[in-house]
Amino acid sequence: MAIFLTGSREKSVRKFTDGTARNFTDRVAEEEPLEIRIEHRGRSHVIAVTMRTPGADVDLATGFLFTEGLLPPGQAVGGGAREQANRVSLSWPLAAPPDLRRIERNGYTSSSCGVCGKTSLDLVFQAIPFPQHPGRTSVAIPDLLTLPDRLRQAQQLFAATGGIHAAGLFTPAGQLLHFAEDVGRHNALDKLIGHYYRRDELPLYDRVLLLSGRASFELLQKAAMAGIPFVASVGAPSSLAVELAEDQGITLCGFLCPDGFNCYTHPERVRPS
């Protein structure tokens, strides 16, 4: 009997193994467009269209608006959200309309491009709403090494499809607090941050973010917006991601696996045990 799993779809395929072929039912991750709108004084404004995996769409829209610098922290959004097929409309909580010039896009984003078009770190620095974490969150190496397995065990969509990204938020001791999955890396992180934004729990000081893929500039930008002081990824970081992490006081670790990792910035937060 077929098992329904939100965000995935069954597909009949022809499987070739060792020179033989057989019919096979595979499960693939869904990728569909989401139109993000805001309602302001009786008018509806299309903010962006992004390719995403359906699920947690209000979190995604909220996180997107916040991490793009359109929505300041501490605003009540999502309570009056209207969801239709591949569309989310949020009531804009501020008297003034959003400054759409902050989004340097053409109104369309793919599932992987994130902040394509931003050419200067200055735009990011101006938008970050929280001061750098005043404490010194530290993570023990044994706890850090366990994070990829803990996140993977929670990823039902990845287990079913093998084609999904995830962003997971942990305590420094390695407890998984919340995670989000999506075909797009930046969508997964927007869903995660939007989840906490809607609960008025930003900034995410004293937390560790794990990325299931590479650590790109746009993902570090979103982490900085949320006040996250420690970011680890199972893949490589980009040069601009390293530069942003160094400037914003974020510890950035890459190539995290059971055997070890590389620490690119602020290694003082990593302790032996």
Rank of each mutant, 00 (worst) to 15 (best):
A56M: 13
S8Y: 08
V46K: 13
P54G: 04
V13Q: 11
S216E: 07
A154N: 07
L70E: 03
V208N: 07
R87W: 07
F230E: 02
R52L: 00
L219G: 00
N86K: 11
H186S: 13
H195N: 06
Q132C: 08
R199C: 01
S233P: 12
V77G: 06
A232H: 07
I47Y: 05
L121W: 08
A245W: 06
G42S: 09
V183K: 15
L71E: 00
Y197R: 03
T6L: 03
Y197T: 03
E201L: 07
W92A: 02
L219E: 00
L94F: 07
Q221H: 12
L147K: 14
R87C: 15
V28I: 08
G80N: 13
Q155P: 02
L60E: 12
V88T: 09
A95C: 06
C113A: 13
H165F: 10
P97L: 11
E83D: 03
L60P: 08
I103P: 00
V231I: 09
N262I: 07
G107C: 12
L151P: 00
T171D: 05
L145I: 15
G74R: 15
G184S: 08
S110G: 15
R150N: 07
L70A: 02
P54M: 06
D247Q: 09
S111N: 11
D57R: 06
G235Q: 05
L189T: 03
H165T: 01
D59A: 12
S12G: 13
G7P: 13
L211I: 06
T137H: 08
V88G: 13
S239V: 05
F170I: 09
G55Q: 04
T25I: 11
R152L: 12
F217N: 07
I128Y: 06
C253D: 03
L65T: 01
P33A: 11
P33L: 10
F170C: 06
L65N: 00
T20S: 10
S12Q: 15
T67A: 01
E201T: 04
D99N: 07
F230G: 04
R269E: 11
R269A: 12
A61Q: 10
D259I: 09
E30H: 10
Q153T: 11
M51S: 10
F170L: 10
I193Q: 13
I228Q: 02
G235L: 02
Q156M: 08
L202S: 03
G235T: 06
D99G: 06
I164V: 15
V124D: 00
A166R: 06
G42A: 12
L209C: 05
R136Q: 15
R82A: 11
V115E: 00
T119M: 11
L244A: 04
H165R: 14
T251D: 09
G42L: 05
G163L: 05
D143N: 14
R22Y: 12
G213V: 12
N23M: 13
P98E: 01
S216Y: 08
Q221V: 05
V49A: 12
V208R: 10
S138L: 01
D26E: 12
A81F: 03
Q84A: 14
T25Y: 10
A160L: 04
F24W: 14
E243N: 13
A2C: 02
V115Y: 05
G69V: 00
D247Y: 07
G174N: 09
T161L: 12
R22L: 10
L220D: 03
G184H: 13
A173M: 12
R102L: 04
R37T: 07
